[in-house]
């Protein structure tokens, strides 16, 4: 390990030297590059392998009409699977649900997450570790468990929510109706993932210069003005990163939907649709096409975030 340190020191020492020094420097640069790839190469190969291979395979399979129950009927049909999907109302309903869940959960989480971050930032003394530990609990609880907890809380027989909530009757079935079922799905998703957002925002809050806030206060800015004119603008980078990460995560929502409704009552999302085509119906061709389309959606979200909103993920994660 230390050889690189000395190599580097040698390279800088020889840097401004003559021709010989220059040759040595590039040699060293080359050696450093080689070592870099030896060290990072295995991780990189696995990263590309475990995701690159499946996406290419899905792309290929999506061009066939292929059902595992009838392997002999496998037939090349070009882009027809995509035609079938894009003209099916099921796809558009799943797309609508996915977009709705993404927009609602991310918007709610940003607001709650910011409030929680503010509290964590301001609370001092013995309470500070207490709140920071508490907030990690939903983060650590697995999504499936969260889904069951919320499903049972609102469940017709197991739940207590109908007894507690004043505006619904005792025998109100939350999972029979699309909108109420989606509400519970969103609640579970929000509960589980807000802590992650609030921790990202907490890191952003810590970057807001205190003297700037003091100065604004001295100049007579109200708390509201300080929030909107000083704090939030200074946190723009971390808000954008939290937003993009969560949006991409919410867009692939599967666990909550599968546990609570299995896609019934019109609550199917894109991931649930892909799963149902492949695993339940064994329609490899159609399932692959849904998967490819879902992947394209994620690419489009990334593209919009980076090109239109200028989210610089590399810089935001501290690498530039």
């Amino acid at each position: 390990m230390s050889s690189t340190t000395t190599a580097r020191a040698g390279a800088t020492a020889a840097g401004p030297g003559g021709r010989k020094g220059k040759v040595r420097a590039t040699d060293r640069a080359r050696a450093e590059a080689r070592l870099g790839w030896y060290l990072a190469g295995p991780a990189f190969v696995i990263l590309v392998g475990v995701t690159g291979y499946p996406i290419l395979q899905a792309l290929y399979e999506s061009l066939f009409s292929f059902r595992l129950t009838a392997p002999a009927d496998r037939e090349f049909i070009g882009l027809r699977n995509y035609g079938v999907i894009l003209t099916d109302s099921l796809w558009w309903s799943a797309m609508g649900n996915t977009v709705l869940i993404t927009v609602v959960t991310v918007a709610v989480e940003l607001v709650i997450g910011f409030a929680l971050a503010m509290v964590m930032h301001k609370v001092l003394g013995w309470l500070r570790p207490v709140v920071r530990t508490a907030i990690l609990v939903p983060y650590a609880v697995i999504t499936v468990v969260s889904a069951y907890a919320w499903q049972y809380a609102f469940g017709l027989t197991t739940g207590f929510m109908n007894a507690v909530l004043p505006f619904v009757g005792a025998d109100f079935d939350w999972f029979a109706n699309k909108w109420t079922a989606l509400t519970v799905i969103c609640l579970s998703e929000i509960w589980k993932t807000t802590p992650f957002i609030s921790l990202l925002l907490l890191a952003g809050l810590a970057q807001v210069p205190d003297d700037m806030l003091e100065a604004a206060k001295v100049d007579g800015a109200t708390a509201r003005e300080r929030l909107f004119r000083v704090t939030l603008p200074n946190m723009k980078a971390s808000i954008m990163v939290a937003l993009l990460f969560r949006a991409l995560d919410a867009f692939r929502i599967f666990d909550n939907v599968y546990i609570m409704t299995k896609g019934a009552a019109g609550t199917e999302t894109l991931s649930a649709l892909a799963y149902n085509q492949t695993i339940s119906r064994l329609e490899i061709g159609l399932g692959s096409a849904v998967s490819v389309l879902l992947f394209l959606c994620v690419l489009v979200i990334c593209f919009i975030a980076i090109k239109v909103f200028g989210v610089d993920l590399a810089r935001a994660r501290g690498e530039s």
Partner: peptide, 8 residues
């Protein structure tokens, strides 16, 4: 999207 890996 992890589900994309599932089919293949």
């Amino acid at each position: 999207p992890v589900i994309t890996m599932v089919t293949p």
